[in-house]
Design a binder for these strands. Structure first.
Lengths: 195, 195
DNA sequence: GTCTATAGCGGGATAGAC
DNA sequence: GTCTATCCCGCTATAGAC
């Protein structure tokens, strides 16, 4: 008997997507350097060589994962701006952000991009993405520079709290902090974060 | 002629310190997985084998570096609270934080700790350290829960901006953002960050 | 489109001399 | 206390079959 079950033959575009989804999770869990193309391949259910062949290199794959994470933030913010349900823009943006980074793959991809600011390939991409989002909330959502900065700051605290998994702590101070961070909607927050 | 100059023979304690200092920089730049013991050795001016021998393993060395980074924040905040120079506590704390994370090793050690929140060994340590700092600024510095949260949020944005090296960008929007983040004292900020 | 096999390099850790 | 040499593993990337 063959050691490998029969694999599904997929169109290139779909295969790319499935690899990107797996890579987002694995890069999120282990970081860029810590992740291996073999782990990503296993998560995607294909061979290691095929992962590399599809994207050319591990670095190119990471850059693509990072680019998509930023794209999803931009798209979510555009939607939040357009979808005026009566709440202030800032609240809509905050909600959209929390919904997005509740996906641990996206959340941790972002943190790894930040920490790779010195990398010649990844650094510039990270800076461009971050500034694009700053401009988005300032110019398109119409926040003042001060408000935009404040909004980003709270977003970065959300990242930290979620990454540290403080939302799963029973420490009363942690509960207080998490409640502050997510604007009181703790139940919603915990549900999204997968507890 | 020998290819290696004569090395200084140091007491074990001093050598440990010099390795820890070098490791903080290198782990900061490349992350835990991305850093090599050889890079750390070169930065410390000793051989790769000696780095490993001194700490037993690369992982043990990283844990020690991370532990020290958290300790330094707590110490700096205690000092900022005690040293009342007339400015509001929050401003003293903010200044102390910027001074500290201008050291890229400390800054990135923190980011790596955050992103390792799921790690069974490092996760709990990270949560404890973060909550200890929340309590410190709330109970000892006397900030309200809201103020404390806001303070931490801006700290996390400082982390991000510094990690991404936005303070080195000529993009006018980046300059605007950095100026917001560091309260207008751009020159000081750039100097600290090593530009 | 997808695999197996393997080349080739780089890294952590160990042994042992000085 | 510190080095050199080296083992051995794991990883990325390539070659080539199906």
């Amino acid at each position: 008997m063959s050691t490998m079950e029969t694999r599904q033959r997929l169109p290139a575009a779909e295969r790319r997507e499935s690899i990107l989804a797996a890579a987002s999770v694995v890069f999120g869990e282990r970081g860029y350097a810590g992740a291996t193309t073999d782990q990503i391949a296993t998560a995607a259910g294909i061979s290691q060589a095929y992962v590399v062949r599809t994207f050319g290199s591990k670095e190119a794959l990471f850059v693509e994962v990072a680019r998509r994470a930023v794209d999803r933030i931009e798209a979510a913010f555009w939607a939040a701006i357009a979808d005026d349900d009566g709440r202030p823009v800032r609240q809509r943006l905050g909600q959209a952000y929390i919904d997005l980074v509740a996906d641990r793959g996206i959340l941790l991809s972002l943190l790894h991009i930040f920490s790779l600011g010195s990398d010649p390939a990844i650094g510039p991409a990270g800076r461009d993405g971050f500034m694009a989002i700053y401009r988005l909330v300032r110019d398109e959502a119409g926040l003042s520079p001060e408000e935009a900065t404040d909004f980003l700051a709270h977003g970065m605290l959300i990242n930290t709290v979620l990454a540290l998994q403080l939302h799963g702590s029973d420490d009363p101070d942690a509960v207080e902090l998490v409640t502050q961070v997510c604007g009181g909607d703790l139940v919603h927050f915990r549900a999204l974060a997968g507890d």
